[in-house]
Amino acid sequence: MKDCAFDLHIHSALSPCAEDSSTPDVMAGLFALSGFDVIALTDHNSCGNCAAFLRACEHYGILGIPGMELNTSEEVHVVCLFPELAAAEDFSEYVYSKLPDIKNRSRIFGNQIYCSESGQPLREEEKLLISATEIGIYEVSDLVEERCGIAYPAHIDRQANSLLYNLGFWDGGMGFEIAEISMRCPDDFADSRPDIEGLPLIRGSDAHRMEQIPEKPLQHLPVEELSAQAVIDALRHLKKT
């Protein structure tokens, strides 16, 4: 067993709300410098920068996991992680087909840039990626598990795009076994919520900009080996500590 420092919620320049300078290689390099062992790229509704991100992570000697922050039809954000790039890209293609045909207006929302592994801009995505998809919250777990991944709701303590805020309460029927809380969430958050009693919680930085990268890792996960599959397995077997 190895304890690895992780952050599984990171954005790149493909997310309109991220800085253009947050290219996948820059994010990977800075997280490596901060001492992380495992990081996941989770752009809004797309895995389009994951290939470049994984290669950059390899270059910096850390483990990269392909992922996405899915926006469900209820406007709940869900982190989805995959053991393989191909599975992530397959899911990404499916999600793209469930995204409404609304054009991004970059002056309002920001640019959506596909990058190379060295951070060069390749092209821009024209469809607005932060829209809600037609995928409902009760469908997500199955769709991700079919592709051997894991899905869990993002920043459930926040007032925007969070499962608890948008839907009111936790329902085990949605099939999520863990949840993410934001960096600022108080440690005793779950104490006042009997509906999430015993639910394992992990933190995600949700970094959109370089300055949002934590100076040092705050949490560790025991894994069998340093692989995406082992990290996903470890998340599945988390117990409340």
Binding site: N71, E74, E75, P100, I102, S131, A132, Q159, A160
Partner: peptide
């Protein structure tokens, strides 16, 4: 309050009543 619905359905010059504040 679901922004995507508003984006897809509200019309030009509408008043928009909502509880969302981000």
């Amino acid at each position: 309050d679901l922004l995507s619905w508003v984006m897809g359905r509200a019309e030009m010059d509408n008043v928009w009543f909502t509880i969302m504040s981000n």
